[in-house]
């Protein structure tokens, strides 16, 4: 060890710096490829229509056209769509957390006949691709007379098998002594679950909540299937309509895209660590 540092500190440093500058070059190119399109999105959104169709390309507008945002906001009910999205995402997250944590607690801490079979049953559902359920789920929604409602967007997505698996690991990690002590004090299962364990599995709940949020936020196919009117859409599916309709004005379409991207990027900027930790959770073998 000492040998190595004594030998040629300067050479090692130089080699390191050379290696690092290569890394920077590659990462800057990657960053441009990944973020550049978003910058182009924004630049287009503040141009005039004429500027968007000038050849060769004009990079910056002569005058910033904030008016594009007003126009697209008048044409398109962004506020409504955001409100719908927030409602749907919140309802989905809360109901998934509630039901998955209840089941996860039972699987992690309680002993009961049929536990393994029930667990296997859930495991097998995890492996089936979602499209296989869509036609009958749609028919159920039609049968319940719920098409074109926000309820329809939440209903089949309230039950997360993945959440049971994720949270089970967190429940299982809680020391037995804590549970024993609570039992001696006369706590029943529900109180142990709710008052003792739920606060302790908060990191798991946050991780699952964030993952559910990203999923519900991006969900496209199901809202397209069950809802028709734009007032009952989430942003994800509503924006898909923008593709069909006002495509002639590139600057307006890009303004719409910016409106739908920016708030989530801001949320992400604040909670980046939590986001990243949550997604990383999916890769941990339990």
């Amino acid at each position: 060890m000492t040998n190595l540092t004594l030998q040629a500190p300067r050479k090692v440093k130089l080699a390191n710096r050379l290696k690092n500058s290569w890394i920077h070059v590659i990462l800057i190119i990657v960053a441009i490829v990944l973020v550049g399109p978003f910058i182009w999105m924004f630049l287009t959104s503040i141009k005039t229509y004429e500027e968007t169709i000038t050849v060769p390309i004009v990079w910056f507008p002569e005058q910033i056209q904030w008016v594009n945002y007003e126009i697209v906001n008048d044409k398109f009910p962004f506020l409504r769509l955001y409100l719908n999205t927030i409602l749907v995402v919140m309802a989905t997250v809360v109901s998934q957390l509630a039901m998955s944590s209840l089941a996860a607690y039972a699987f992690a801490r309680l002993r009961f006949p049929g536990k393994n079979i029930l667990f296997l049953f859930m495991l097998s559902l995890l492996m089936v691709p979602g499209q296989i359920f869509l036609i009958p789920q749609y028919q159920i929604i039609v049968g319940l007379n719920l098409t074109d409602t926000l309820t329809a967007l939440v209903l089949p997505n309230m039950f997360s098998v993945f959440g049971v698996f994720l949270l089970r690991q967190f429940f299982a990690a809680i020391p037995q002594e804590l549970e024993d002590a609570a039992r001696i004090d006369g706590c029943g299962n529900f109180r142990i679950y709710w008052q003792i364990m739920m606060p302790l599995v908060t990191p798991g709940l946050v991780a699952m909540g964030i993952l559910t949020m990203i999923g519900a936020w991006k969900e496209l196919l199901w809202p397209l299937i069950v809802n028709q009117s734009i007032d009952k859409m989430t942003l994800s599916a509503g924006l898909a309509n923008l593709i069909g309709e006002h495509t002639t004005y590139h600057e307006q379409v890009m303004a719409g895209a910016v409106i739908s991207v920016l708030p989530m990027i801001i949320v992400f900027a604040f909670f980046q660590r939590k986001f990243v930790e949550s997604i990383a959770q999916t890769g941990i073998k339990g």
Binding site: A31, L34, V35, F38, I214, L242, V261, M264, I265, F275
Partner: peptide
């Protein structure tokens, strides 16, 4: 920079 596309709507 690398993480941003992960949270962007497919429609956008």
């Amino acid at each position: 920079a690398v993480f941003i596309p992960a949270i962007t709507l497919p429609a956008a």
